[in-house]
Design a protein around this nucleic acid. Structure first.
Lengths: 194, 194
DNA sequence: CCTACCGATCGGTAGG
DNA sequence: CCTACCGATCGGTAGG
């Protein structure tokens, strides 16, 4: 795919290096040499190192938003909606493993404005998962004695932590991971009925 | 507690700064100024910046080991053992939030030897959780149709991801988080029986 | 996109 | 533990 603009190429290599080594441990000269150019030449295409980080993080956030937010008003049962949220969430993580890793690890290094956008975004996603849980309880599909906040954290743990162990090319894809997790979470690990 | 050696004080401040800003974004002068000394003076107490990182990460790993490994041969039922593992795991995370954060985020920046120790350690913990799950299945306490690997990942997600949202001083402690998570995981979120 | 360079800052050392 | 300093490297710029 050599149709990619030079800017996109820089963006891709930056995702890769930032996710592997971290933002501060990656120099602009590292980046440039991976692209076969000199350090200073990068600035013909971008204006600063932080601009790159902001773009990677923003793009990751947008992917999560585009995948998850339409579910709010989706016409589905609570269980299907929860399963679909996990599936889509995991699709974003597994299909954008590098930018997702940068998103989870490097957002601390953003300047105040971009930093705030990320924390706001996190709150939005938290809220979405809490609403899904609440809706499930209200409609009698999820147990009424659940702590909504803790339940949302548990769901988010499962889908987010995946970036630490998932490696592409294996037999697992987002859908099968989501099915595994949702089955365990909804039905429980124990044999003994309650 | 002014009985702490200067070395321990350096270690503590390093944990704090490395967890907040990251290893590479923390300079030795940042560290020194928090301790009221000059950058160069640190080297009267330590030999290098990486030595600090290695110590923080090693200490965190040792805390997890000391808490979890004795459970392997503990004389407990599978469910209690699983609950106790989660409780102890969460106790380490919540009581050492800063070093746990450094452990989860900054181990990539270790030199090859220390790096390998961390990946080996991770495998050990993975294995422990898988054994706990396997034992639960074998003794009929956990569902026989569980995928052992995925189940272990799910458990580890819950206890590990906690470092991202837990803030000390709230009403939740390790035990109550562990109870919440274990109840949800073992019994399931759904009302409908299977 | 390259060459050549800027000031700033880095981890670390010597000598006291 | 301080002062003063080292070479190396950083992000970024100017001029072509």
């Amino acid at each position: 795919m050599s149709t990619k603009s030079r800017r996109e190429q820089i963006h891709d290599v930056a995702s890769q290096l930032f996710s592997e080594r971290g933002y501060h441990a990656t120099s602009m000269r590292d980046l440039a040499s991976q692209l076969g150019m000199q350090g200073g030449s990068l600035y013909a295409h971008i204006s600063s190192k932080e601009e790159l980080l902001v773009e990677i993080v923003d793009q990751a956030a947008r992917q999560f938003d585009d995948a998850l937010m339409p579910l709010k008003d989706a016409d589905m049962g609570p269980e299907d909606k929860l399963r679909e949220a996990m599936r889509r969430h995991l699709e974003v993580v597994t299909h954008n493993l590098e930018s997702a890793t940068v998103f989870f690890h490097e957002w601390k290094h953003l300047s105040p404005d971009a930093y705030k956008k990320v924390t706001d975004w996190r709150d939005t996603i938290d809220r979405l998962y809490r609403e899904l849980v609440q809706e499930g309880i209200r409609k009698g599909v999820l147990r009424a004695d659940l702590d909504v906040k803790m339940t949302a954290y548990l769901l988010l743990s499962a889908v987010n932590w995946t970036y630490t162990w998932y490696r592409p090319g294996g037999t697992l894809d987002a859908t099968s991971i989501a099915n595994h997790f949702a089955d365990m979470l909804l039905v429980g690990l124990r044999t003994e009925p309650r």
